[in-house]
Design a protein around this nucleic acid. Structure first.
Lengths: 152, 152
DNA sequence: CGTGAAATATGTATCGT
DNA sequence: ACGATACATATTTCACG
């Protein structure tokens, strides 16, 4: 993982629709050398996947929420089951297991309150794992950036 | 925006590296018709961009935090300036403006505590806009999904 | 890592429904 | 207005230097 790989990642985090030729030109490499690097970065999991980011309000899924979850107790199987439900719930886009006064923070995005309700049933009220939760409703998502700071 | 567009979005949210041919085959369209739709979806902003998702731990930026921010008072210019600083800070990947006991929730991801410190200086302590904040340190990111539920 | 040629994919024009 | 076919252009990909 040298400087060239970092520059490649930097570009692709911004715009994965770049052709290999353009990418190669930008990082100062021949197309074939560039392609080999990109493939290696995918192979070894540094590039996990390429995705299209869709405007939430173009699809009526513009309701974002932050849910802080406190579990009933510290218990491996309990946690594992909860995480499994979280993973299975399409409404939950992110899940952070945190230290401190709460145990999990979920980022939820849904079309309406009915969908939020379904989420509560399928994840929060299911299985007696959750002691309590607090929902912060987002009025606005001011920033959403998938890019990691690479220090290039 | 019909069923076909939704199927296209569904595919591209999963894997934007699909060739137009494969995509067309999956949604049951000819390549040219498919391409026209994809371009239209990009033109009108439904597809915002395509990005590569990079494994955070492959790059030593694996420290995630959730920061809850409470402002000193409700004040337009104050908020505007804060948001501007948030947007400028590469350590802050997401910012939700929420209702309730706190005013903002930030998702931060950094390589180390030193970077977190820089963030505090450049965003949280700058400008006397922030009354207080609470930082929840993530032990683990159990889920990170950019895909919106499309109900297809 | 770079070059060049073969294999693939994209993009366009045209026609049909 | 939208989709299909076919052809021209561009890109990816691989063997070789």
């Amino acid at each position: 993982m040298d400087r060239l790989d970092l520059r490649i990642l930097d570009q692709l985090q911004n715009d994965a629709s770049l052709t290999n030729q353009d990418l190669a030109a930008r990082v100062g490499l021949s197309p074939s050398a560039c392609l080999k690097r990109v493939r290696r970065l995918k192979e070894c999991g540094v590039i996990q996947r390429e995705v299209a980011l869709v405007a939430p309000d173009a699809l009526g899924a513009s309701l974002h929420m932050v849910v802080e979850v406190t579990m009933v107790r510290d218990d491996k199987p309990l946690y594992r089951d909860f995480i499994r439900r979280v993973e299975a719930a399409p409404e939950v886009s992110q899940c952070y297991q945190v230290t401190g006064e709460v145990d999990f923070v979920l980022i939820v995005n849904v079309a309406d309150m009915q969908s939020y309700d379904r989420l509560c049933d399928s994840v929060l009220y299911a299985g007696d794992a959750v002691h309590k939760f607090r929902t912060l409703i987002s009025r606005k998502r001011n920033k959403f950036e998938t890019r990691l700071p690479l220090g290039v």
